[in-house]
Design a protein around this nucleic acid. Structure first.
Length: 227
DNA sequence: ATGAAGATTGCCT
DNA sequence: GGCAATCTTCATG
């Protein structure tokens, strides 16, 4: 059963930590791949300089301005997709949660086939470790932009973890803790954003091996300018 | 019309 | 740790 839509009808900063431990799954003709979310980031709308919605509604980010519980998928760096889940703190808030990483709990072979190109091998923990990798493992692209993740018949959907609705992580257990032990949620600055870098809106499970490495934003070298 | 930067990743030294 | 790959979007002229 998918998560009810009102789960997403809150500020992204509230929704984000609650998404940890929830399951994102994508059903395609090739099969099902599911991940338990282990790392996310919250983005507000007009008030957040780091948000794609900061400068208003465009063709690309239109879904962010729509109803909550839908996927906002964007293309970046000429080769990567990233997926967000739209939230709604207030009408037209255009906020969302970026799904940065997860642990594959179903369809691992299919996920690996998608992530493996050429002779490369991919460790299980790296299958969906990073926002673009997560999309590649689940075969998420712009055709899923606007997909309703709260609909049971949607190919892309989100459901609660194996235990409680939020913050459960019963499938994954860490270290010596018995399965079902609630895991600690950590917060910190968002990865790779150039503005509002000090806002601690990144959330992840402490010690979880699928969480991506933190990288501060580094402006890319500009094209050569004449002196 | 044109250019610059980007919510990244993988390969190279 | 550094940098190329690759193309869409937005700002500027």
């Amino acid at each position: 059963m998918p998560i009810p839509r009102n789960f997403f009808a809150r500020h992204a900063v509230e929704v984000a930590p609650d998404l940890l431990g929830c399951v994102l799954e994508h059903q395609t003709a090739d099969g099902l791949v599911a991940v338990e979310l282990t790392e996310v980031e919250a983005y507000a709308g007009r008030s957040d300089p780091a948000s794609h919605a900061y400068r208003g509604k465009t063709k690309r980010n239109a879904v962010m301005f729509g109803p909550p519980g839908h996927a906002y998928v964007y293309f970046t760096y000429g080769m990567h997709f990233c997926v967000n889940l739209v939230c709604l703190g207030e009408e037209g808030s255009a906020s969302a949660v970026l799904l940065r990483a997860g642990a594959v709990i179903a369809g691992e072979d299919l996920a690996r086939a998608r992530r493996t190109r050429g002779a490369a091998s991919v460790a299980s923990r790296d299958l969906a470790r990073g926002p673009a990798r997560l999309c590649q493992a689940l075969d998420i692209d712009r055709s899923l932009d606007g997909a309703d993740v709260c609909a049971a018949d949607s190919p892309l959907r989100v459901r609660a973890g194996a235990g409680n609705p939020a913050r459960s992580a019963t499938v994954l257990s860490l270290g010596d803790d018995p399965p079902g032990t609630p895991r600690k949620i950590m917060t910190g600055p968002r990865v790779g954003v150039s503005s509002a870098a000090e806002v601690p809106w990144r959330f992840w499970f402490e010690g979880e091996p699928t969480v991506s490495l933190y990288r501060a934003h580094v402006p890319r070298k500009r094209k050569l300018v004449t002196p």
